[in-house]
């Protein structure tokens, strides 16, 4: 697991609670909706943590604003990690 991946999983754990995540092996293909069954308000909380951790250069509000609700809920953990990595490289 790369660094960004393990950081995202850590933040997910803070949002949904450790008990639940023990039952699910989180990988890049894991989707927030089908696999993790995240409530939409929990995804808001996750974005909040991502924003606080990676700062404005990752620009999650803009990333989210470009998608409709179905697209957002169909995102995978890998999609989010990829977005962070790409934005971080662009600023490196």
């Amino acid at each position: 697991m790369n660094d960004v991946m393990s950081e995202v999983v850590q933040m997910l754990t803070e949002v949904v609670g450790e008990d639940f995540l023990l039952d699910v092996e989180v990988g890049p293909e894991t989707s927030f909706s089908d696999d993790l069954a995240l409530e939409s308000i929990e995804f808001v909380a996750l974005v909040d943590r991502l924003r606080a951790h990676y700062g404005d250069r990752v620009d999650f509000p803009a990333f989210i604003a470009g998608l409709d609700l179905d697209q957002i809920m169909n995102l995978t953990v890998g999609d989010v990690v990829e977005h962070i990595t790409a934005r971080e490289e662009a600023h490196a």
């Binding site: 409530e39 939409s40 308000i41 995804f43 808001v44 509000p61 609700l69």
Partner: peptide, 13 residues
């Protein structure tokens, strides 16, 4: 309901 219904619809635009 909660704030997410506006978060994903009107708030960002």
């Amino acid at each position: 309901d909660n704030l997410s219904s506006f978060y994903y619809t009107l708030a960002a635009p």
